[in-house]
Amino acid sequence: MRFLIIIPAHNEENNLPFTLDSLQQQSSKDFKVVVVNDGSTDRTAEVIRKYTEADSRFETVSLQKSEHQPGSKVVHAFKNGLQTQAMDEFDIICKFDADIILPENYLSVVETAFATHPEFGLVGGLLYIEKDGNWVYEGNSNKHHVRGPMKAYRKECFIQMGGIRETLGWDNIDSILLDNLGWKEVVLPELHVKLIKVKGADYTIRPADYYGRYFYFLGLNRFLAYIASSKEAVKSKSASFFFDIIRSYENCRSKKLELKITKEEQKAVNDQRLKMLKKKWLKM
């Protein structure tokens, strides 16, 4: 099985070499890497050039600087890289970040998982961050969800679900859509992926605004958005946080901002969220 790996990169001169080195050191060699230089102002382009000149499996695409919006920016870059390739030549489509270090067997283990389980649509490992000199589990998501920095899709699944969406919440929308289509999302806990920097550190959006926009663009109806907002407020131990999230969510609704999912897909998202609510909260 052949891998197509798309890596969006913006000002990653310090981190990108670790990612690309870990790819060159993979035990599985049948892959192509497209690094999308998304308007970098540092030496990212020079870093990329060292690999493209030395290894024919590495290519690059350069974009003009785009507005930094959580979610949509990285998917926009990913799509630009994807458009340069003939998908018929590949079996697995990967979206990797430019600040991860993969274990040497990452691609081979993912390939085996896809080859032996035809129902698998999305596969990935677990993220680890450095803390006090040790690499520890990141813990920002449950261990059954493949995180955004290391997505590997079976091509047929990727095409059937219409690719990934250029919107906040894309890396949860994909999970719901592929599940609705009968595919499985699988985390392989033995694959430890090192995350060099903490996600979200570059975002300037306030947390309440982020959650309000996230719940809106995820396609949640008002009832489920309010439930999700209350959960975040409980976590933060702040009643005002709930109202700030709701204000952001309702602001998006009043402006009727464009969703990147269809009405049918939005229904699938809400049905899945309601199912989770009944299972976890109501024990139904």
Score class of each variant (00 low, 15 high):
213 R>C: 05
213 R>E: 13
214 Y>D: 00
214 Y>E: 09
214 Y>F: 14
215 F>Y: 09
215 F>C: 00
215 F>Q: 00
216 Y>F: 09
216 Y>Q: 00
217 F>A: 00
218 L>D: 01
218 L>N: 02
218 L>Q: 10
218 L>C: 03
219 G>M: 04
219 G>F: 06
220 L>F: 12
220 L>C: 05
222 R>C: 03
222 R>N: 08
222 R>L: 05
223 F>E: 15
224 L>G: 01
225 A>W: 05
225 A>R: 05
225 A>M: 02
225 A>D: 02
225 A>T: 06
225 A>G: 09
226 Y>H: 11
227 I>H: 12
227 I>G: 07
227 I>R: 12
228 A>R: 11
228 A>M: 10
229 S>I: 01
229 S>V: 06
229 S>D: 01
230 S>G: 13
230 S>D: 13
230 S>Q: 14
231 K>V: 14
232 E>P: 01
232 E>N: 13
232 E>T: 02
233 A>E: 05
233 A>Y: 05
234 V>I: 14
234 V>S: 12
234 V>C: 08
234 V>H: 09
235 K>N: 11
235 K>A: 08
236 S>N: 14
236 S>P: 00
236 S>F: 10
237 K>W: 02
237 K>V: 11
237 K>Y: 08
238 S>P: 07
238 S>H: 04
240 S>E: 15
240 S>C: 10
240 S>M: 12
240 S>D: 15
241 F>L: 04
242 F>L: 13
242 F>K: 09
244 D>L: 11
244 D>P: 00
245 I>K: 03
245 I>R: 09
246 I>F: 10
246 I>R: 12
246 I>W: 11
246 I>M: 15
247 R>N: 14
248 S>E: 10
248 S>M: 06
249 Y>I: 07
249 Y>P: 03
249 Y>F: 13
249 Y>V: 09
250 E>G: 02
250 E>L: 12
251 N>F: 07
251 N>D: 13
251 N>Q: 10
